[in-house]
Computed example of a mutant assay.
Amino acid sequence: MRSLRSIDRVEQPSRPQPRTAGRPARPVGHVLRIPIYMNSSMLLLAALVTVVYGNWVRSELDLPDPVGYLVGLGFVACLLGSVLLHELGHALTARRYRIGVRGITLELLGGWTEMDRDAPTPKVDALVSLAGPLVSLVLGGVATAVTLALPDRTLADQVAFQLAASNLLVAVFNVLPGLPLDGGRALRAGLWALIKDRNRATEAAAWSGRVIAFACMVVAIWLYRLELVTLFGLAFVILVVFTLWQGAGQSIRLARMTRRFPLVDLAALARPLLTVPAGTPLGEAQRRRSEDPRPNVVLAVTDSAGNLTALVDPVAAERIPVDRRPWVAVDTVSRSRDAVPALPLGLSGEQVVRALQAHPAGQYVITAGEEDQDVVGVLRVGDVADVLEPRRPRRPAP
């Protein structure tokens, strides 16, 4: 059996992603002050490789069962080390060009490095992207030299050969010119330098990734029919192809969204406020809103001095039975003004998206005036999503 470590991707989003608090992976430590996370899917792969490789090496070298599985577990540890070194190649190169690294995640199909901003130039984008495959190529070369120096059909020889094959195959596979592979990012960098438009370059490289995914599927089925690939190998390739297709689709979607950032205008998206005094019955407040000629009016609560103190939560308000709304004060279904994130009116579209990603919430108050104290409207995150993805299915407005 000749193991193939799975694909790798560098997370270099077109714009910063939400903070890692919601990351679906467990922290396992730090390397060079870079947080390392492991997805639970990696444990599934580790168990599978331990059993499959352990059985193979046990039968090839006539080893006892416990020893074979122990060797399989050691091989998994070496593969994880190879994946980590590959990702560190990306991460340390990014640091070299002052791009912050939020963390490295190891998962079922390899790993990915999360960076806090885009590469500033096509050259840096290409260097960061190709650093990982270069590390894998060096590791594969070293393992190949070790394999040639060791006696044939020994345990050390077999492990070294597997490491050589997996790292070299990963290095070659990852430089294929299609997103989300590293070679796709290098292709994106080249197109970016040529046409001076990062988003169009990303979309083109992503479509190239989908072509590569389709080609991989065709080749895998052809090799399976020739009995050169096992059913397990075909299933693995299908999983890789699915991941490539999904990653390419995500890149296309992100590029199209990023192109629409300038259309995010807070002044145009701000929903107007209809203020009612604290203690106003919910039914009465909703009646006033229904009679207001302005579209998408948001109910807000003011104190006795007329200062805005809270925003009515539309979801909480709808949960109140209609027959009880005349007896329930708006205060009970409202959220304090201080608990709602604020966005200054003068932000650009890109700045708005960055702020929404850094501080996720359902709605935001839009402020203006001296020291941004005056609330001039409310932004619903769904309204921004409608601008960035106009073709997505829309939910009924609350």
Rank of each mutant, 00 (worst) to 15 (best):
T230Y: 15
V312H: 04
T332A: 08
L273T: 08
R260P: 07
Q286A: 12
P281E: 00
I221Y: 10
L311P: 01
D303T: 12
G279P: 00
L231Q: 12
L228A: 12
V312I: 11
V328C: 03
V322T: 12
L299Q: 01
V241F: 12
Q246P: 00
L231N: 09
A267K: 10
I221L: 15
Y224A: 11
R294D: 03
L223Q: 13
R289W: 13
R325I: 06
L299K: 03
L311H: 02
V328G: 03
A248L: 02
D313F: 06
R260F: 06
V219I: 13
I320L: 07
W222M: 14
E227S: 13
L274I: 15
A270P: 00
V328A: 06
I238T: 14
F261Q: 02
A329R: 05
A310P: 07
A310G: 12
G283W: 03
A305P: 00
L274E: 05
N307P: 00
Q246A: 12
S290A: 12
V276E: 01
A310M: 10
A278T: 14
L254S: 10
V312C: 07
V322A: 11
E291A: 15
E284V: 14
A300Y: 04
I252A: 00
A329V: 14
R256D: 01
P314F: 02
A270H: 02
D313H: 11
D331N: 07
L254D: 11
L234C: 11
V229T: 14
E318T: 12
L239Q: 11
T275K: 08
A317K: 06
T230I: 11
L254R: 10
V298Q: 13
N296V: 06
V297P: 00
R319Q: 13
S304Q: 07
P293E: 07
R288I: 08
E291R: 13
R253G: 01
L254G: 08
D292R: 09
L308N: 11
T230N: 13
A317S: 07
N296T: 10
A270F: 04
A220Q: 11
W222G: 10
A220V: 13
M217F: 15
F236N: 08
D323T: 08
T332N: 05
A220N: 10
T280V: 11
R294V: 03
D313N: 13
E318P: 03
L308M: 10
R271T: 06
V218K: 02
L228G: 06
P293D: 07
T302C: 09
T243G: 15
R287Y: 14
R294P: 01
R259T: 15
G249S: 05
A270D: 01
R256M: 02
E227L: 09
V219E: 09
S251C: 05
G279F: 10
L228D: 07
V312E: 04
G233L: 09
P281W: 01
T302Q: 13
L239D: 06
T280H: 07
R253N: 02
A316T: 03
N307S: 09
L226Q: 11
D292S: 12
G283L: 10
E318H: 05
L273P: 00
G247D: 00
D313E: 07
V322L: 13
V322Y: 09
S304V: 04
N307H: 14
F214S: 09
L273E: 05
G306H: 06
G247V: 00
V241C: 13
I221V: 15
V241N: 04
L282F: 03
L269Q: 02
A235M: 15
N296L: 13
E318G: 07
F261M: 11
P314A: 02
